[in-house]
């Protein structure tokens, strides 16, 4: 992509011509973000390094859900950073800097993924239907009778030390990471943004252009898949 001729709006990466070189009056930026943008616009390389270090890992992880392999994800994120550099003077602060950057990446990753899908089939494109898929296996609940919809096979409680135990075990960490990497992109995007990066729900919705209802449906299904991985791990201990 020729980044020199492409600009990105703050509502999610669609090409558009923006003229202002300063932050808009209605900016949503925090003081820290405004400071960072000021440093970036002054050309402070350290500020750019900080920005890249802060977001690069999450950008790569999310991009990998949309494209064929890590190499392509690296290209997508590299293109994203080039677009950020090119668009910095036009960024008006109507969304957070993070929302703008992740929006650019998702636009590029989806575009690249769609182009590749025409020629390739791979599991990363597993589709996900918000309306029909159950988070938890329905067979774990009574299907009929007086107790229909209530647990038939309830989960076994985890003890209070479980978080520490999980984080201390490389096997458990690997199991959780595998579960996250195996998520379809629609679920992986919300889990990484909300739970891994700690982005507020409203901002996640803005980045992904989904409603809060969709967000919680997806987030819960993503958490449930990780929970199942932990349950399997603990069951095998």
């Amino acid at each position: 992509m020729n980044v020199a001729t492409t600009t990105y709006t703050e509502s999610g990466g669609h090409p558009s011509a923006l003229e202002s070189v300063s932050l808009s009056i209605g900016t949503v930026l925090t003081y820290a973000e405004q400071q960072l943008i000021t440093r970036l616009r002054k050309g402070e390389e350290r500020a750019f390094d900080e920005l890249v270090t802060k977001h690069h890992g999450a950008l790569i992880r999310m991009a990998m859900g949309h494209v064929a392999n890590r190499e392509v994800a690296e290209e997508v994120v590299q293109d994203t950073w080039m677009a950020v550099i090119e668009g910095l003077d036009r960024f008006e602060g109507r969304s957070s800097l993070r929302t703008w950057i992740f929006g650019i990446m998702i636009h590029k990753a989806k575009d690249r993924g769609v182009r590749e899908k025409r020629h390739t089939t791979f599991s990363a494109f597993e589709s996900f239907n918000d309306d029909t898929e159950e988070a938890v296996d329905p067979s774990r609940f009574h299907q009929s009778g007086e107790w229909a919809g209530h647990w038939a096979l309830p989960p076994q409680p985890w003890d209070d030390q479980t978080p520490e135990k999980l984080l201390a075990s490389q096997q458990a960490v690997n199991a959780m990471n595998r579960a996250i990497e195996a998520l379809p992109p629609t679920l992986k995007d919300v889990l990484i943004l909300r739970d891994v990066e700690g982005v507020e729900a409203k901002e996640v919705c803005e980045i992904l252009k989904i409603t809060e209802t969709n967000l919680y449906v997806r987030l819960h299904r993503a958490r449930e898949r990780v929970r199942q991985a932990v349950e399997t791990y603990l069951g095998g201990c």
Binding site: P155, P157, W158, T162, P163, L166, L167, V173, M176, N177, I180, L191, D195, V196, G198, H220, R223, E224, V226, R227, V230, E231
Partner: peptide, 14 residues
């Protein structure tokens, strides 16, 4: 509680 644990632990993964 398990979902809350997953939410918290995922954010702490290395």
């Amino acid at each position: 509680k398990q979902i809350a644990t997953v939410r918290d632990v995922v954010g702490l993964l290395p």
